[in-house]
Amino acid sequence: MSSMELVVGLIQIVISAALINNFVLHYFVGICPFLGVSRRVDMAFGMGCAVTFVISLAAFLSWTFTYYILRPGAPLPAWVWHAVGGDASVSIDLSVLSYILYIFVIASSVQFVEMYVRKYFPALYKSFGVFLPLITTNCAILFACLEIMKHLQDPTELWSLPQALALALGGGIGFTIAISLMAGLREELDLCDVPKPFKGPGITLIIAGIMAMAFMGFTGMDKGVHAALSSLFQ
């Protein structure tokens, strides 16, 4: 594939993960911070940026581990197997360890990011409070790792590292968009007359439903994006 086609493919992955198959509004991951997000758009945007960074870091690490160690026919176990004199026709598949490894990688990434932020951005660390460790249980990060694993199962169509990072970045951007929109809407909600049973999570979920309907309008856009980008780079 030419490099232009590669770039078009990457941009397509980013737009698909950010808008068409938005992590929050289409795949329902990352709902807990989405529902509990503060009413301040700048705090929500900061949270989105933190999640984007952690997703990218976790995706990089999990792609590396999955590609070289865990997937069926991975090079490192094959090398070890050969070194101990095993039969060369056997293909080793360690993907049963995937979930444990991914959650370990995510917990370590969050810990690392927390230490880094506490040392170099103490004001930011203070404003995040308890939310930074809670990113570990953010479904969006594990979901990104699982999607990357899904694309590393078929030996004929393996995703490269730039593609995995594009998916992670797109997912993080989509999460940031959704959470910032929700924070802005909740700011306006304070001035509205919400019926008592709906206050809190009830009205937030209904707003999310209408947002999801709006984002459904992006369906089928990826073919048009591909055509537009291809003609642009031609």
Partner: peptide, 22 residues
């Protein structure tokens, strides 16, 4: 059965549960 319906159904059922509690 599409994603928006999930949000709407859960939101309405949550509101119903809250109404009973209140």
């Amino acid at each position: 059965v599409l994603p928006p319906g999930a949000f709407l159904a859960l939101g309405l059922l949550l509101a119903t549960a809250q109404w009973f509690t209140q």
